[in-house]
């Protein structure tokens, strides 16, 4: 039993197979057993890494779906109890140091909107969305082999992402000073967990972008690795899209 015998199995390969067989024959015996365990032929015509990234993002949808549901439930229950003047809920807010006027505003409007600064958050949302644009430019520059531009755009994307994060840190600080603490109310727990999870994802993305930048400066991010940039881009766009949802659901819808 030899290799040849194994290949002479009684079968008629389909058209697409004949190509493969021909390639193997061309290269002679030294490459016939060449290792192709990792996607030499990829059945879907999509690289393993990209497929894996899409699957990961699919999984992330469920993660954020569950977190958003939790937030909506927490907010609704919080407001119901607050409007009903549940003393424990009121005490929770007061213990966090929330001023009485703000609490009364919450109750009067039956909404948590008074604590939000929508123009500010709109601004930081805009910055995050623009970073998706620079991400696209970065990928384009890498695939075209324009390394100087790719570094500019990667840095710009990381910078815009960091600006968004700075905005979130600032916003969290303001909210905390206004008495919205993590443990003081159901709304606080829900809000900080949801937006915090998103912030952690953005931070992870920034680390990836900075790593790409380092690779680029070391000359290891050439056009044949454009897909690595594309993968980070997929993740980055996903995080942006999730923010569009979170911004709409948390801030805009009363």
């Amino acid at each position: 039993m030899t290799d040849t015998a194994a290949r002479e199995m009684p079968l008629e390969p389909e058209n697409e197979l004949q190509d493969d067989v021909a390639v193997v024959d061309d290269h002679g015996s030294d490459i016939a057993g060449h290792d192709d365990h990792e996607g030499h032929h990829s059945s879907l015509g999509l690289s393993n890494m990209k497929l894996a990234m899409w699957l990961f993002l699919g999984s992330e949808c469920l993660l954020f779906g569950a977190l958003i549901s939790t937030y909506l439930l927490s907010k609704a229950r919080f407001l119901t109890e607050l409007v009903a003047l549940n003393p424990r809920v009121l005490d929770g807010l007061r213990d966090g140091g929330m001023p009485e006027e703000l609490i009364q505003e919450f109750i009067a409007e039956g909404s948590v909107e008074p604590i939000f600064d929508i123009p500010f958050t709109s601004g930081s949302s805009f910055i995050l969305l623009m970073s998706s644009l620079t991400m696209v430019f970065a990928h384009k520059a890498v695939s075209e082999g324009n390394y100087r531009n790719s570094r500019v755009w990667l840095a710009a994307t990381a910078l815009l992402g960091s600006t968004f994060m700075a905005g979130q840190v600032y916003e969290f600080t303001i909210f905390f000073r206004e008495g919205l603490t993590y443990g003081g109310s159901l709304f606080g727990s829900g809000f900080f967990t949801l937006t915090g999870f998103h912030g952690a994802h953005v931070t992870g993305g920034i680390i990836m972008l900075l790593s790409l930048l380092v690779l680029s400066f070391r000359g290891k991010l050439q056009s044949n690795r454009a897909e690595t940039v594309e993968l980070v881009g997929l993740y980055w766009h996903f995080v942006d899209i999730v923010w569009v949802l979170i911004f709409t659901i948390v801030y805009l819808i009363p």
């Binding site: 990792e38 996607g39 030499h40 990829s42 690289s47 393993n48 890494m49 990209k50 990234m53 990961f56 992870g204 680390i207 990836m208 790593s211 790409l212 690779l215 044949n224 690795r225 454009a226 897909e227 690595t228 993968l231 980070v232 993740y235």
Partner: peptide, 17 residues
């Protein structure tokens, strides 16, 4: 031979995600 198609197992950044 088709190494440029990006079908790599684990580019360096893979672990970050």
């Amino acid at each position: 031979p088709d190494g440029g198609d990006g079908a790599t197992a684990e580019p360096e950044l893979e672990t970050v995600s």
